[in-house]
Amino acid sequence: MKARLGITLFTALALAASMTACANPDDSGANTKSKDVGKTIEVTKDKKIAAMVPEKYQKRGSFTASINPDVAPVKFTDSNGKIVGLVPDLLNSAATVMGIKLNLQKGQFDAMVPGLESKRFDVVASIGDFKERQKKIDFIDYLQTGTAILTSSDFKADKIKPNKDLCGLKVGYVRGTAQQGLISKASKACVAAGKKKVQSNGYGDSGAALLSVKSSQADAFWGDSPAMLYNAKKSPDLYKIVFQQKIGPYGIGINKDNSKFRDALRAALLKLVETGKYKQLIDKWGQEGFAMPKMPLNTGPKLES
């Protein structure tokens, strides 16, 4: 939900070219179980919505989505190397409604926005919707989320205040995420109070950041709530959550000059809401209470600086 993404960061992101896989070793599908939600609701092509799909996608028969599969249970790689989770299920179902197929392309988070801008793929699946990012991208918001700080289970405190209690500590984050800016803000508060600054360490994916806590190379990892809560719940002997805050929605990102495709995809997602498939997927992946069934556009807040 995964840094302060103003114009400066977008410029920096444009230099990122790597699109390598970033599966989280601690998010192995071997230990991830989706809920049994009863009889599966079948998804079929909707002729009216399929007619909304721009001709180039109809001819191609597919669209491509870049995804960083390291935020279980929203998006992660299972023990067989397959990308699974809420958003892959959601986009695959939407593609069926649209009468085309979905191609998922693994990528590092900080390369997703520039890759979308350069049209290497059609969709970013998915990132935090913030006003700074809306300057470049339109977002279909499908899930409310937030930010959380994870530490080792033997960390000195069970609850902390970031602007006060992170001073002098080593805190990891995934490069290009909202947490980069939040850590910077906390560090400035520490310095203003006459304390040591926060020692921030950026990583390419949440697997590496999580490993830094596990190996005691970092005191904490500040990341998106779904992944933080999932790992703390899965391994309470290793990790715990010491801070949590709701900050904004996850959105499926699409270039602003691709509005016809955006509208077709949103119509397909709303069809999934209508048929009950969206709720079934929300329940399957344990995201009850975080649903955004109206699929609004660009509702994210401004990033804290």
Rank of each mutant, 00 (worst) to 15 (best):
D224W: 06
T299M: 14
S212G: 09
E132P: 08
K271M: 00
Y239S: 05
R175I: 11
V84K: 02
D237F: 14
K33Y: 07
T20D: 13
K48V: 02
S206Y: 01
G168K: 04
K196G: 03
A30I: 06
G181F: 03
A21K: 11
A227Q: 11
R4W: 14
K240D: 12
V124W: 11
D165C: 05
S152C: 12
V53T: 01
G276Y: 06
D141P: 00
V191L: 04
A23D: 13
D89L: 07
E288D: 15
C190F: 00
F221R: 11
I137Y: 12
K156Y: 05
P69F: 02
G176P: 04
K47M: 03
A125V: 05
Y173V: 09
K101D: 02
G6L: 09
I254F: 06
I254C: 04
S126V: 10
A227G: 10
G289V: 02
L169Y: 12
T64M: 13
K106N: 15
L272E: 00
L281I: 04
K33C: 06
I7Q: 11
F109K: 11
I241N: 07
G146Y: 05
G202K: 10
A51K: 00
Q134N: 14
C190Q: 00
K2N: 15
D27M: 13
M98K: 00
A193M: 04
N31I: 15
K101Q: 01
S66H: 10
D158I: 03
V74W: 08
D110G: 14
N231D: 14
S126F: 13
G146L: 07
K156C: 04
Q199E: 07
A16L: 14
D70G: 06
G168H: 06
A218N: 14
V43S: 03
K82Y: 10
L143T: 01
A209C: 01
G204I: 06
I282K: 03
K214W: 15
I67T: 05
A72P: 02
F10V: 15
V213M: 08
E42D: 08
A291G: 08
T275D: 02
K214C: 12
R262W: 04
K185L: 08
N80M: 11
Q58P: 08
G248D: 08
P162K: 07
K39M: 04
G248C: 08
V113Y: 12
L182W: 10
A220Y: 07
P69T: 02
L143Y: 00
F130I: 12
T299D: 14
N24D: 09
D257T: 09
M292W: 03
I41H: 00
G6S: 10
D257V: 09
N231R: 14
K256F: 01
K246Y: 15
R175D: 11
A95D: 03
Q179D: 12
I7Y: 13
Y278G: 01
K161H: 03
K284Y: 11
Q179R: 09
V87R: 06
I49Y: 00
K75W: 12
L182Y: 09
V43N: 03
L303R: 13
T96N: 06
I149G: 08
Q58E: 08
T64R: 13
V198C: 05
V71N: 10
P293H: 07
T96V: 07
A50R: 02
I49P: 00
